[in-house]
């Protein structure tokens, strides 16, 4: 019974995340940027923009320059999470890729980095006057949800181990549209349930910052307005303006 509920939950969550995010991204891509607004100094070539974006994604460059504490916590969290996610590949593979094997020990302990980052961000949100001012309930809840995921996951690795073979069988089954029985462990149910919730709210929440970054004109545009004329589709449809100068008004 619980296995069925979770199986359905994961199908729904995956669908919501993929379709929802896909639709949003499509909308971003189709919305025109009427003007060239890269924040300068900006790269003058496409290659330069790739490099700029790579620095933003890999190093959080702008954040590093603007606030070292937020950068530290955000970096711990995001890259901890990345390693943890990579480690999770093994639950979806019969034959585990070599690099997934390689990342296992790192992924295991990266969960602590993730936790440290999340706790740091939460503390800042609660105690830093300016950030508290700009926080809505959802901002705290999002951190709480991520903490729940991280804590429950870490617990399964280090405290109360679950029958990981059955979990993997369940996941592999999902990939093949078969519902296998999953172990009914509270901590596992919490972990998987909160992950599913996160996937569901992904496209309707601030988690959209991840794909959003790649559509931010101030970062992704090439600084070449003088060399190449940039014209949005709707602006091209505007009525023509007169070419000549009107004769000067008669002076009384």
């Amino acid at each position: 019974m619980i296995s069925t509920v979770y199986a359905v939950l994961f199908y729904v969550a995956t669908l919501m995340m993929v379709v929802g995010t896909g639709m949003k991204v499509l909308k971003y891509a189709r919305t025109s940027a009427p003007l060239k607004i890269p924040v300068s100094p900006a790269p003058r070539t496409k290659r330069g923009v790739w490099f700029r974006m790579a620095r933003e994604v890999v190093l959080f460059e702008s954040l590093f320059k603007s606030n070292k504490w937020i950068w530290l916590f955000a970096y711990l969290f995001h890259f901890g999470m990345l390693l943890v996610l990579l480690r999770h590949f093994r639950y979806f593979q019969m034959e585990i890729w070599w690099w997934v094997e390689l990342v296992q020990p790192f992924g295991k302990y990266a969960s602590f980095a993730m936790l440290a980052g999340l706790i740091g961000l939460l503390i800042r949100r609660i105690f830093q006057q300016r950030i508290r001012y700009i926080s809505a309930p959802s901002d705290y809840l999002m951190l709480a949800l991520l903490l729940l995921i991280a804590v429950s996951g870490t617990m399964m690795t280090f405290v109360s181990k679950v029958d990981i073979i059955s979990v993997k069988a369940f996941m592999l089954g999902l990939l093949r549209f078969r519902i296998e029985t999953m172990p009914v462990e509270p901590v596992l149910l919490i972990h998987l349930g909160s992950v599913a919730l996160l996937m569901i709210i992904f496209p309707i929440s601030k988690l959209m910052h991840a794909p959003g970054l790649f559509f931010s004109p101030s970062r992704t545009q090439v600084d070449n307005a003088r060399e190449f004329r940039h014209l949005s589709a709707w602006a091209a449809q505007l009525p023509d303006l007169p070419e000549g100068i009107p004769a000067p008004e008669e002076k009384k």
Partner: peptide
Amino acid sequence: LADKNRAFRVYLDTCVKCGACTDK
């Protein structure tokens, strides 16, 4: 405006309230 200006739409959606701009 959200339909005509990508920046407007994306910027309204993507802010995570990290607070890095608050003292700028």
